[in-house]
Design a binder for these strands. Sequence first.
DNA 1: AATGGGACCTGCGCGC
DNA 2: TGCGCGCAGGTCCCAT
Length: 267
Amino acid sequence: MPELPEVETIKLQLQKHILNKTIKDVHIIDSRLIKGISPRRFAAQVKEKRIRDVFRRGKVLIIKLDEGLFLTFHLRISGWIMVSAQEEKCARVVFILADKKRMTFCDARALGEIRLAGDWRALPFIQSMGPEPLTLNVEEFIQLCAQRKAKIKPLLMTQTFLAGIGNIYAQEALFCAGIHPERSAYSLTKRELGKLHQCLITVLRCAIEKKGSSISTFRHTDGENGDFASCFKVYQRKDQECSRCQAAIQREIIGGRGTYFCPQCQK
DNA sequence: AATGGGACCTGCGCGC
DNA sequence: TGCGCGCAGGTCCCAT
């Protein structure tokens, strides 16, 4: 479910609601999500620690606790986080906070993961992560794409290349830039790359402003929906009219993933 | 280096 | 209503 804008939204909401609260207890409903440490040890380590900071790297949400410990959450496809007083649907791991509220990691498909780390930067997935798209300048982006033969759409989604872009925002950015998702990265001109860079930033910023996209299960920490889905120009719009040229939006499998694009104005 | 397939999981909507 | 299939915002691992 979550790409950069959704994780960013969760981060901002958690900063508002759980900062400086102490975790009094942990209920592990589904221990499969706790990776790299036994569930028992995980719970023992986290208990009575105070939440000192909440931040994001790519699609990973990171919570700094006391004593140099960090919780990392990856929501994969179907995860979301709720802060509430009640039991939540699809609850997998529940952190009981000192004010009796609960921070619940919910996940329909149970593919998400939670880790506890001393040095979060050393976690393999994070260590190999590419740069943050929102702080990368255009020259750096052009440099990154140089000599990459891969199709641009799967490449944008490769986390070691660029962090935080997934299936929705790759497609929306490529539509915005008028670039066909199957173009080789190195075939793109500087002008096209400049446009793509600008579109990535515009789309991501807009999605953050709208508090993400709510497809299927994704909710904010208070259960509200994100509003960006109404801004989709191609995603899930097969056979609908392109907003630029009125051609029918097409769906194809590219790099193993469903991909929507306008066959007429994405070249 | 790039691409393709399978694995990990569960739930929803659709056509019959 | 029931069933099978395709589909799903992700990533890893292996083979070619």
